[in-house]
Design a protein around this nucleic acid. Structure first.
Lengths: 236, 236
DNA sequence: GAGCTTATCTTACATAGTACGAAAATGCGA
DNA sequence: TCGCATTTTCGTACTATGTAAGATAAGCTC
């Protein structure tokens, strides 16, 4: 009996596959940032040599396109049954959370303009909910641009913040306050001390506030609901 | 007389400087994308050898931080005199245009979390306008998060679109329509044929529509204006 | 000029993506 | 079981990147 027959060696027992390659790519980007995702680090993670990856992907750009689509695949598609507001609220939150788990995806969105099938399915389903809710084609386009701009932009701001979550440690806030206390930036100082640095503050809480404002205003774009006013949709 | 004395040789006559280094960095990123911005391409552009750059910047990361700040420096700071809505409208448009000229800045915002002085001054001035307009500290924070999320997100979507401007050439729209026409994505198909692909369409026009909706709704967060209703600010 | 400061460049190294083609593993018909 | 074709993995090598370490050059002051 040879060694291979006795014990399963730790080598690539599970066969390589496109799914495994892309899954590890996401894992590396999540753990150490998109900059740490190299063909070599990816191969190492999979217990394989770099050039083996090229049997499953044409090049690194294809990996980047694919992992963006994987992020969208994580997001449950909204449903046409149920109230549109609730669905849009749920969807926006899910997008924000997905982009929060994979902040690198936000940066990639700017440079990679080849949407994958999951991304397209997501957009299609979302538009479907709006159309079913009574938005005209134009109004649905306006509404979707507005909702997604807000959601992506919020996720971008969250990613750009030097802190996240509730009650940031003083070790990270102190240098910032120090920077403001020179007297330039009085309004930033005010908002920091009176709002952001208060116990229990979480920037993420701002999301629902803006979202509700948008959803409430969008409601008025739906023409002649049973109990609502007539259309107030913009001319565009 | 030596050659140097007779004619000005095409070599680095204008001395290198931090400003020149950063200016060329922006120019390269604008022209060929942030990926084309390398220490070597930057040196070549300046008629200099790569290591000379390190006399003016500590490393490439410092260049990236600095050119983000240069983008914000391009944006005229809003003024507390004049109506807040007009100022916010003007500012949002200016931010969108600046990010449109330098789309790479959007992607950089996600990864680089060290705001420069122009960026801070911009944020400070914007908050100042909102506070002066009557927004409470909390309401100003909410409003600013909302306005900037929308603006950044819209710029991100514009950058991610495979087309831009009015009346996109059929050569670029045809493959997209082809992709939709298989029958998956019926709502994308609908919105494409009935709205996006109509003559004269420009995604950029959607910006003002969403912006007006937001500004109108924000107005109701200002407590007791002379002629307006009382505060309708959220509890947060 | 000498010597000090400021500015630029040479060389070299580790790490990146990937072209090219060899090698190994696998599956299959006889 | 053998032979062979297909599928999968890998070795080598090339070009490009950021930048450390230190040599060199240019400019200024006495």
């Amino acid at each position: 009996m040879t060694a291979e027959e006795i014990s399963e060696d730790p080598s690539p027992r599970i066969p390589l596959s496109r799914e495994r390659v892309l899954g590890s790519a996401v894992a590396i980007a999540d753990a150490d940032g998109i900059g740490a995702l190299t063909m070599r680090s990816l191969a190492r993670e999979l217990g394989v040599k770099p050039m083996s990856l090229y049997y499953y992907v044409a090049n690194k750009g294809e990996i980047l396109d694919a992992i963006i689509d994987m992020v969208f695949a994580e997001i449950d598609v909204p449903s046409v049954v149920g109230d549109w507001k609730g669905e849009m609220r749920r969807r926006a939150g899910a997008v924000r959370q997905a982009l929060g788990r994979h902040t690198w995806a936000i940066g990639l969105l700017e440079s990679r303009t080849a949407p994958g099938p999951a991304t397209l399915r997501h957009h299609d389903a979302t538009l479907g909910v709006l159309r079913t809710a009574g938005f005209s084609v134009k109004a649905a386009a306006h509404a979707y641009a507005l909702l997604d701009s807000y959601t992506y932009g919020f996720a971008l701001q969250e990613a750009a913040l030097p802190f996240s979550g509730r009650d940031t440690a003083a070790s990270v806030t102190d240098p910032i306050v120090q920077m403001f206390s020179a007297g330039d930036y009085p309004h930033l100082m005010e908002i920091a001390t009176e709002h952001v640095l208060q116990p229990g503050y979480d920037f993420g809480d701002e999301f629902e506030i803006g979202l509700e404002l948008i959803l409430d205003a969008l409601q008025r774009w739906i023409p002649e609901t049973e109990d609502g006013p007539k259309s107030a949709a913009p001319a565009g």
